[in-house]
Design a protein around this nucleic acid. Structure first.
Length: 590
RNA sequence: GGGGCUGUAGCUCAGCCGGAUAGAGCGACGGUUUCCUAAACCGUAGGUCGUGGGUUCGAGUCCCGCCAGCCCCGCCA
């Protein structure tokens, strides 16, 4: 209903200007969705703040606005008689025939009423970002799932989205990894192509242990770091092997989660790092402190009462992550041959990095690297906690591997499905069981994460996320299945619906809910909060289930049948599309 | 010490630009099935929105103080 809301906003604004031209600058309709269904579709709260400047009672002001509105034939064609309520709210109800017409336009619309952006400029979404030679673990879950969903929403709106995997593929830890590789598997460096290093985590642990215990090994490792930065061919080869091996492991997880990412690791920005220092020098921001090159932050005071620095070049001449992040910002905003030409750059990382990003963003801003009107945003999220409220760990106290976490969800979904089939005496093929368990298991993990406001810490619970009732993936998937069931039992959802007519309150509730989809997408695009989409889809499912329970579809009279099938069709399309934007696949039967 | 985030029903959480009597799910209690999958639906109970001030016609929402929890704070990312 975005278009309708915009039209109403304009009509209200003009009516207010006609009624009160003397306070033109203060006029704002404050048009918002009605807080309760009995108040209609929208409410305009704009009369209340005018009471003081106009020295009139707010209800009297509202009455004058309504009078002016009713002189507008476009308004009276759109809305029923406005109601003045409470202290001076103007309640607005859209004419049923206009709602039905709006619904009709969505039936054949792939975009479900969501407008495509004009002047689309690239948006960078930086998410997931695991470290080479380490396994993906629960710490990568939220960034990966939230980042993917935000990318999908932005893509749906028509933005060219660059999904960047800023993997940790550079840095001092490679010294020890390469040294270890050269010693335990020297043959891999002379043979071509990829190599299977087996368990990378074990490999990393061995290397780390040797580094901690063996001084000679440390010396070698430091030499390898220097060689790596000096592009020594053999060292580069070893580095490449380690990256390939990791990449293959990451890709298994991404395939499973149906997530597309372009890898562009830290190493990509390596050649650009000296330029960052030069640029900061040119901007006269660089200060040498205790041998390190720093930019001192404005408005951020450290322990000693002095401004906190962002260190961009270490005392030993090396660069660090702040330098890389600055190089990335510069590159992403730079125009095409030398950059991505982005107008919006989004970082999906845990809230613990908020200070870091605030500092880096400030430096980029002061260096003049953020173009006019461009947006640079940190999208923070809270920790994944166990049901005890502490950081999620395995029973033995280890970090939970992402692979294991997904496996367990799918296993639990399968066990639950098998128990249910047994109870209900249903016979299903093994491939059906695998498909349903796989879909439900992964959907549950994703939905549970996305349905929370991402800012807060998130309490992980298989039992809650896999529950068949409540605000869960299975509940939503079931609503889709119910509609598919109607289609299987003879309901033609592709029916041409020249004229829609609705008589039951449950039908109208569903119509109104369906028409909210465009506004919800616009909100997620702006606020970058996928939980708003989840809430909407849950509410839509609830309204649909009420409709399904109380209003017969297939057994309806013929004149009502096609309109009800149209509601089913659009509900299914909206749920599938919305779940798709969360990265969740749907099922026909479950 | 400084900074950030959080604090809403027994539990897990929503709460949009400040707007009408603060919502949902789970759990608890009670009801509904000759009918498209009851994995559903209907109902009841449950609140000092951490706390004290302030701004406002109006505050869960904005500002200040305090309390509690978590996180971050110079050469790791």
């Amino acid at each position: 209903m975005l278009r309708i809301a915009q039209a109403l906003d304009t009509q209200l604004r003009e009516a207010m200007q006609r009624a009160f031209p003397e306070v033109d600058a203060l006029l704002d309709p404050q048009l918002v969705p009605a807080s309760k269904p009995e108040f209609g579709d929208f409410q305009a709260n704009g009369a209340l703040p005018l009471a003081k400047p106009l020295k009139q009672a707010p209800r009297q002001i509202a009455a004058a606005i309504v009078m002016a509105l009713k002189a507008d034939s476009a308004f009276t064609a759109l809305c029923l008689e406005p109601q003045i309520a409470g202290p001076g709210f103007i309640n607005l109800t859209i004419r049923p025939e206009r709602l039905a017409a709006e619904l009709a336009t969505r039936l054949g619309d792939q975009r479900l009423g969501v407008p495509a952006v004009e002047n689309a400029a690239p948006v960078v979404v930086d998410f997931s970002s695991p470290n080479i030679a380490k396994e993906m673990h629960v710490g990568h879950l939220r960034s990966t799932i939230i980042g993917d969903s935000l990318a999908r929403v932005l893509e749906f709106r028509g933005h060219p989205v660059l999904r960047l995997n800023h993997v940790g593929d550079w840095g001092t830890q490679f010294g020890m990894l390469i040294t270890h590789l050269k010693q335990v598997a020297p043959e891999t460096l002379s043979t071509a192509d990829a190599v299977d290093l087996g368990d990378l985590v074990a490999f990393y642990r061995e290397a780390k242990k040797r580094f901690d215990d063996d001084e000679a090994f440390q010396v070698k490792s430091r030499e390898e770091v220097v060689k790596l930065q000096g592009a020594d061919p053999l060292t580069l080869k070893a580095w490449g092997l380690l990256c390939d091996q990791s990449r293959r492991e990451f890709q298994k997880i991404y395939n499973r989660l149906d997530i597309r990412l372009s890898e562009r690791g830290e190493s990509f920005y390596n050649p650009l790092l000296p330029g960052v220092i030069e640029g900061l020098k040119d901007a006269e921001l660089l200060i040498t402190d205790d041998g390190a090159q720093c930019v001192f932050l404005q408005g951020v005071i450290g322990k000693d009462g002095k401004p906190l620095p962002v260190i961009v070049q270490k005392r030993d001449g090396g660069f660090n992550y702040a330098t890389t992040d600055l190089a990335a910002i510069r590159y992403r905003f730079a125009s095409i041959p030398d950059g991505d030409a982005a107008r919006r750059v989004i970082y999906v990382t845990d809230a613990g990095q908020a200070n870091h990003f605030a500092g880096v963003f400030q430096v980029a801003e002061r260096a003049g690297w953020i173009p006019e009107g461009a947006r640079l945003q940190h999208v923070p999220f809270g920790l994944v906690q166990g049901e005890d409220g502490k950081k999620l760990k395995t029973r033995s106290g280890d970090t939970v591997r992402l692979r294991d976490l997904l496996d367990e969800s799918v296993e639990r979904a399968e066990a639950d499905l098998r128990r249910r089939l047994e109870e209900e005496g249903r016979q299903e093929t093994e491939s059906f069981i695998q498909l349903v368990a796989g879909t439900v298991g992964l959907a549950a993990v994703k939905y549970a994460d996305l349905s929370q406001n991402r800012i807060t810490n998130y309490q992980f619970s298989f039992d809650r996320m896999l529950a068949l009732q409540g605000n869960t993936a299975p509940y939503l998937l079931y609503a889709v299945v119910r509609i598919a069931g109607i289609a299987r039992k003879g309901g033609d959802l592709d029916v041409a619906t020249a004229q829609l007519q609705f008589n039951e309150p449950q039908e109208w509730s569903l119509v109104r809910e369906l028409l909210k989809f465009d506004a919800v997408i616009a909100e997620v695009e702006e606020e970058l909060l996928p939980n708003r989409l989840c809430s909407y889809l849950f509410e839509l499912s609830q309204v649909f289930n009420r409709f399904y329970d109380q209003i017969p579809v297939l057994k309806a009279q013929s004149d009502a049948l096609s309109s009800r099938l149209a509601l089913c069709r659009l509900t299914a399309d909206t749920l599938k599309s919305g779940l798709g934007l969360l990265g969740i696949a749907t099922l026909e039967r479950m």
